[in-house]
Simulated scan of single mutants.
Amino acid sequence: MRIAVCLSELKPEPWVDGLRRALPGADVRAWTPGAPPVDHAVVWMPPQQLLDEQPQLRGLFNIGAGVDALTRLRLPPRTQLVRLEDGGMAVQMAEYVCHALIRHFREFDVYEADAREGRWSYRKPRERGDFAVGVMGLGVLGERVARAVAQFDFPVNGWSRSGKAIDGVRGFVGDDGFDAFLGASRVLVNLLPLTEATRGILNRRNLSLLHGGQPGGYLVNVARGGHLAEADLVPLLDSGQLAGATLDVFEVEPLPPAHAFWRHPKITVTPHGSARTERETSIAQIAGKIRALERGEPIGGVVDHNRGY
């Protein structure tokens, strides 16, 4: 069995070494143009050339949860595109979202600003029941986030295309339930995959529906920058329709130094660090799936190209 590792912007050697340890007897090498045929490839943002040169490729394993960059490539007809299912990212994502939520709910950002000015301030406590959290996308990461938020006694809503029952989470399904989901949620957490159907879904119209259309909604985007219609956000913040936003992902990354998001007082920017792939955990998961494929067994995380995730 031959495996190629092709990781744009990352060193392949630690992944090659890890896969060799996890799959003794496999021929694992860093990919180079013109390389011999392989059975599987472990990739991050690979060039089209790799796929064109490997028409016999059986498994294409992405080292991240999002596969939007790969669905735009032309895959060989027999190749299964496989995404990570967690890879150590779910708990990190839950930490990040809960931190952003609690920072906003408890107004720690206001305390921070007052402390910089040497002001000893007081804020009236808020009611958790007034801060329903809507989690958009209920895959492995979204479910973990929804369950974590519920532990802090916030009302939690969940929206997905096909519907998913989670204890303590009020479910909304598909297009018919989308507007009701937004209206019932004051804090919106986006964990959707980026597809043609979800690009720009965080736009003026949809964000204005938060909190029943009342001012005071809040956005946390930890999925992809392409979900947000960036030009719509600042006017919503300036008008008070939205109280603020925590953004970890952007249409262009790194976020350009002159971008308005850096300087807006109601926007918290982080550099796409809400959840990092844990290499050893991911290697173990990928190796297990490769072994299952070699045995002819079904595996999880196979991408449906019609849906894009």
Rank of each mutant, 00 (worst) to 15 (best):
Gln92Phe: 01
Phe261His: 02
Arg78Ser: 13
Arg116Ser: 01
Gly273Gln: 12
Gln241Val: 10
His227Lys: 09
Gly171Asn: 11
Gly66Pro: 05
Asp153Ala: 15
Glu253Cys: 08
Asp86Thr: 11
Asp130Asn: 14
Trp262Asp: 04
Ala41Met: 11
Leu202Glu: 12
Gly34Phe: 10
Val67Ala: 01
Leu23Met: 07
Glu53His: 12
Ala4Tyr: 01
Pro33Thr: 10
Leu7Cys: 08
Leu188Val: 14
Gly213Trp: 06
Ser121Trp: 04
Val43Asn: 02
Glu117Asp: 07
Arg205Asn: 06
Gln285Ser: 09
Ala100Gln: 14
Arg263Tyr: 11
Glu278Pro: 13
Leu70Glu: 04
Arg126His: 10
Arg116Glu: 05
Leu84Trp: 00
Ala180Pro: 08
Met93Asp: 01
Cys98Ser: 08
Asp248Gln: 03
Asp52Arg: 15
Gly174Asn: 11
Gly163Ile: 08
Ala284Ser: 15
Gly177Ser: 05
Gly59Thr: 13
Arg72Ser: 11
Ala197Ser: 13
Arg83Leu: 00
Gly308Ile: 06
Ile166Pro: 03
Gly273Val: 12
Gln241Asn: 01
Arg119Lys: 10
Pro235Asp: 00
Val269Arg: 00
Asn203Thr: 12
Ala165Val: 03
Asn206Phe: 11
Ala132Gly: 14
Phe61Gly: 14
Gly18Phe: 03
Met93Ser: 02
Glu196Ala: 15
Ile166Ala: 02
Pro37Ile: 02
Ala150Cys: 03
Gln54Glu: 07
Glu143Arg: 15
Asp130Met: 07
His104Pro: 01
Leu10Tyr: 15
Asn306Asp: 15
Thr79Phe: 00
Val303Ile: 15
Leu70Ala: 06
Arg307Tyr: 06
Pro235Gly: 11
Ala146Lys: 06
Gln54Gly: 11
Pro46Gln: 03
Ile63Tyr: 00
Ile3Glu: 03
Ala180Met: 04
Asn221Ser: 05
Ala115Ile: 03
Ala284Leu: 09
Leu81Ala: 12
Ala284Met: 09
Glu85Met: 07
Val189Arg: 00
Val169Arg: 09
Val303Gln: 02
Glu280Lys: 15
Asn157Glu: 03
Ala284Cys: 10
Asp130Trp: 02
Gly163Phe: 05
Asp52Tyr: 10
Gln49Cys: 02
Ala258Trp: 15
Ser282Val: 14
Cys98Trp: 08
Glu230Arg: 01
Phe178Asn: 08
Ser8Asp: 09
Arg2Thr: 12
Arg29Glu: 09
Asp167Ala: 14
Pro298Lys: 09
Thr71Ile: 14
Asp238Trp: 10
Ala69Arg: 12
Phe152Met: 10
Leu228Arg: 00
Phe61Ser: 14
Glu107Pro: 00
Val28Met: 08
Arg170Gln: 14
Glu278Asp: 14
Ser8Tyr: 09
Gly64Gln: 06
Glu53Thr: 13
His40Ser: 14
Glu107Tyr: 11
Ala148Thr: 09
Arg224Ala: 11
Asp109Val: 06
Lys289Met: 06
Asp68Asn: 10
Phe152Asn: 07
Gly163Asn: 02
Thr195Arg: 01
Ala292Ile: 10
Ala69Asn: 05
Leu209Gln: 13
Ile201Ala: 09
Leu51Lys: 09
Ala245Arg: 00
Val16Pro: 00
Gly200Met: 07
Ile290Phe: 04
His227Gln: 11
Val302Met: 04
Met136Lys: 06
Ala197Cys: 04
Arg161Glu: 02
Leu219Gln: 01
Leu188Lys: 01
Arg204Asn: 08
Glu196Gly: 11
Ile290Val: 10
His264Val: 04
Arg279Ile: 05
Leu192Arg: 07
Arg204Ala: 15
Tyr309Ala: 06
